[in-house]
Amino acid sequence: MEGNHLLDTRGSFTQKKNMLLHVQRHCKEKPYFCEVCGSRFTMRKSMLRHMQIHTGKKPHSCEVCGTSFTRKLYMLQHMRTHTGEKPYSCEVCGSSFTRKHYMLQHMRIHTGEKPYSCEVCGSSFTMKQYMLKHMRTHTGEKPYSCEVCGSSFTIKQNMLQHMRTHTGHIEEKSHSCGVCGASFRMKHHIMLHMRTHTGEKPHSCEVCGASFSMKHHITLHMRTHTGEKPHSCEVCGASFAMKHHMVRHMRTHTGEKPYSCEVCGSSFTINQNLIQHMRTHTGEKPHSCEICGSSFTMKHHMLQHLRTHTGEKPYSCEICNSSFTSKQNMLEHMRTHTGEKPYTCEVCGSSFAQRRSMVRHMRTHTGEKPYPCEICGASFIQKPHMLRHMRTHTGRSAIS
């Protein structure tokens, strides 16, 4: 009976050896094993291919850049980075990909599928690797270690960035700038650096005339004219003109926040956000208004403030043509037309068009009265109420 079961495979074969291999898949027989690690295989060629992991043999080489691979399939996939071929297309939005695997991952953006879930907090992810990275926030695992000082990191990229703090000191820098003392390993680099002092910008854009100190910078600048965005996100297909913008975007998928505040532990996706956050602790306000001297933690806040002096209102409502100094104020105004009230009170369910209105409303539940009278100590929910009360002490008319 057992023999009859093995032969009842519903398949036909031209050669007996192919039939025997097929039968092995049904009975899960794996007669070939690796002498190094003990892994077992149904076919001899699979075992030989596996052995290349141990021997380091990579018989398939790229004719363009010389990179070598263990399997011909991997080499052919790599060739697409040179040819630009992207044979797998998304049927929904048309984004194209070099591998079918990437296209299937991308499709989850449209379907909303997140098949990989964190067993600790329930967060779900589109890719297994993102879930594994996220798990380290719970386990504290830091598998990537610095060979110099032993510091460990949760993400390889962070470890490589850290390593540069050592290589910058260890590697000899024999070429020094006579102006500021900065040192460089190569003479070519110091010549480029000197342009920061001389102001020399020998590379000019043929389209708009903008000039640059380095050829690489004009290459990046030209993409603002051509619209070229050569760096694509493998998850959602979004494309970017510069690689570091794409790397930063990837953190929206992974949830990675590599920049942490040493004071309160808050973490951020980009270093600039951490620098701005630190000012809430230090009180630093480096951006000052040239007219009235008011200072601000962020430059764009100072620029918005300047409009109170210039009267500039660059953001206009498309419905009633009212104009505003900031985009946020214009968006809040638009809700008077749409009736949208996105901020909801968790206690009573009341909804509000503006966040500050909801915060103010919450005080009716909490009893908080953050505005005290400096004379008698009476406190109020809203600042205008406190100012109106103050007039009972000063004798000023409430109407004035």
Rank of each mutant, 00 (worst) to 15 (best):
T42G: 12
T308G: 07
P314F: 01
L48K: 07
R307D: 08
K173R: 15
V247P: 01
C264V: 12
L387A: 03
F13R: 07
M131K: 13
R71M: 09
F184M: 09
K341T: 13
Q129A: 05
H217T: 10
H162D: 08
C208D: 14
S326A: 15
C121T: 06
Q276C: 13
C180E: 02
A182F: 07
P384T: 02
K243T: 12
R388Y: 04
S68R: 05
I270Q: 14
E368C: 07
G339C: 03
G168C: 01
G265Q: 12
T14F: 00
P115M: 00
E200A: 10
P286H: 03
K16Y: 04
G66V: 04
E332H: 12
E141V: 05
F125G: 10
M390W: 08
A182E: 11
S68N: 08
C348F: 10
T167K: 00
N158T: 15
T83K: 00
K45Q: 12
S12C: 14
L7W: 10
S288G: 01
S174N: 09
H389T: 08
I319M: 02
E312I: 03
F33D: 11
H50G: 05
I109E: 13
T154L: 01
V207E: 04
T308A: 04
E63H: 06
H110R: 00
S46M: 04
A238Q: 13
F97Q: 02
S260R: 15
Q161R: 12
P342D: 00
L132F: 08
G237A: 01
K128M: 08
H166F: 04
K86W: 02
G367V: 11
Q157W: 05
L274Y: 10
V347T: 14
F153R: 02
R108I: 02
S124P: 14
K128D: 10
M330G: 06
A238N: 08
M191T: 15
L20Y: 00
M358V: 13
Y315N: 06
E113V: 02
V179T: 04
I270F: 00
